[in-house]
Design a protein around this nucleic acid. Structure first.
Lengths: 224, 224
DNA sequence: CGTATAAAATGACCATCAGTCATTCATTGC
DNA sequence: GCAATGAATGACTGATGGTCATTTTATACG
């Protein structure tokens, strides 16, 4: 009697179909401008059905956002799996995040809605938990590499790897946000290429957190 | 016949009264949860009247936000007027921004709504222009100091002061946003005090952008 | 004064949209 | 077939941003 199982599968599929539709609409319109009616129409379902699968509009938004976080997590995990040297991995982590920013811009934007919660409705608890878990996995991954860097004498051992992670991640993200929304302004007003500024920021920070040995290793990679 | 002038004054006063009311409501509820009806009631005016003075809810929001930017600008200008040495001014700029973050948290939050535009309605052109002007004045101020730092041999002359400004500002802001919304999470999950992380981030970056002379000067101030 | 004119303020009203729920429709098990 | 289960529907509600015909207030003038 696999009927129950099939039903479960179909339900899961519906959830995904709704998510697909929501994604298309949110990517195009953003959270506030998108309407549940439009998502319903895109999904070829009635609005009521959406609410059988998701608690609220913001819940749906978070669900789409988590797809993006999973992609990012996978990209970072891929770097870790490579099992390169720590300096090489640092570079590759940076490149992976940059690639995510460039190739998954829509998801990237959604992720930074989290920074400004101010949710209008209550978000489903499970959704919030899952979100936290995913986030945590990304951080553990980054922290693991940084800890290894310290252990191997590549990174300064007077710094807390978690703090270093926050600093690297935050400043990269802040610059990406600026690139996303103000690239032209800076180009025109100050003749600044923010993409280069992002690189510079990374370089300065890498330099600051490395030991002498780490800096040599990074320089060697850069020259390769 | 000063009647016209008085009328103008009264009109300006109304605008301010409305702004006061909007500020109270926005501070308490945030943009999306605040309602024009509540602002009207707080201002002891009818909703229609609000629209005689401001084009839209978002327009009003921006107007409140600009009050906050003016406060920040004044705090920074005060530092510049002090005419201290460049290293001292860098420290004081950092402290001024930190003080702004700590003492004007509500305004700080509003400013970072700008980063995520996604405006729902069209914002009044003049409002947008004024916003841009204010923003520009803040940047010019910071850039001026950094340029002076380069001229005086305090800051590395191979770096563009505008780029340095963006990097310093962005990373400080990013950490502040995290402090504002995730302080407890980081405390509990990783035993990290994000306020210290903010300081560390600043220190690392100051170190990275300074010449040897600049670093000595900063160290001297820190030890004083 | 009292009336005409202009300006300011009002609040009923409209359109939009998130979210609900009584009803309808489809599938399954007998 | 036919009940029983549960998935799907869409008309409806309430909230809310924004509008505008009307009313109120202030001023000017005879």
């Amino acid at each position: 009697m696999g009927i129950h199982e099939r039903k479960e599968r179909e339900k899961e599929q519906r959830r995904e179909e709704i998510l697909d539709a929501a994604q298309r609409v949110f990517f195009e319109k953003g959270l506030s401008t998108a309407t549940m009616d439009e998502i319903a129409e895109t999904a070829e379902l009635s609005k009521g059905t959406l609410y059988l699968y998701y608690k609220s509009k913001e819940d749906l938004y978070l669900a789409v956002m988590m797809r993006g976080m999973e992609i990012l997590l996978e990209m970072l995990a891929e770097v870790v799996r490579s099992n390169d040297s720590v300096p090489k991995m640092l570079i590759r982590l940076r490149d992976a995040y940059t690639a995510y920013f460039n190739n998954h811009r829509d998801y990237f934007r959604m992720m930074h809605f989290l920074q400004t919660p101010q949710f209008h409705t209550q978000v489903d608890d499970e959704m919030r938990r899952n979100c936290g878990t995913l986030n945590r996995r990304v951080w553990d991954l980054v922290n693991g590499i940084l800890q290894r860097g310290i252990d191997e004498g590549i990174l300064r051992n007077d710094l807390n790897p978690v703090e270093v992670g926050i600093i690297l991640w935050s400043s990269a993200t802040a610059l990406m946000l600026r690139i996303d929304s103000e690239r032209l302004i800076w180009k025109e007003t100050f003749h600044i290429d923010l993409a280069k500024t992002l690189k510079l920021s990374n370089t300065l920070l890498f330099d600051a957190i490395c030991t002498e040995e780490g800096r040599r290793a990074l320089a060697a990679i850069a020259n390769a």
